[in-house]
Amino acid sequence: MAQKKQVVNAPDGIRRAERVLVYAAITVAVFSAVCIAIYLIGGAAHVTSASGIWPAIAVLPVLGFPIAILLIIAFVIVSAIRRQREIRGDTR
Rank of each mutant, 00 (worst) to 15 (best):
A24Y: 06
C35R: 00
L63Y: 11
V76C: 02
A56K: 12
I57Q: 07
W54M: 03
I73R: 02
I36S: 01
G43A: 00
V20D: 15
L21G: 11
R19G: 12
A2Q: 07
I72G: 07
I14E: 11
I14H: 06
P66L: 08
K5Q: 13
V22E: 12
E86Q: 08
P66Y: 05
P61V: 06
V59L: 10
K5H: 10
A56V: 08
G52Y: 11
K4T: 13
F31S: 08
E18W: 09
K5Y: 14
I67Y: 11
I67F: 14
I72Q: 02
I77H: 00
S51D: 05
H46P: 03
I72H: 01
D90W: 07
G89A: 00
V7T: 12
I69C: 07
T48K: 05
I26M: 12
Y39D: 01
V59M: 11
A2T: 10
A58F: 15
V28I: 15
I72L: 06
I73Y: 03
D12L: 10
T48I: 15
A17C: 15
G52F: 03
Q3K: 14
A58K: 02
H46D: 15
E18G: 13
I36H: 07
G42Q: 02
T27I: 14
G89I: 08
Q6T: 09
T27N: 14
R83L: 02
L60G: 00
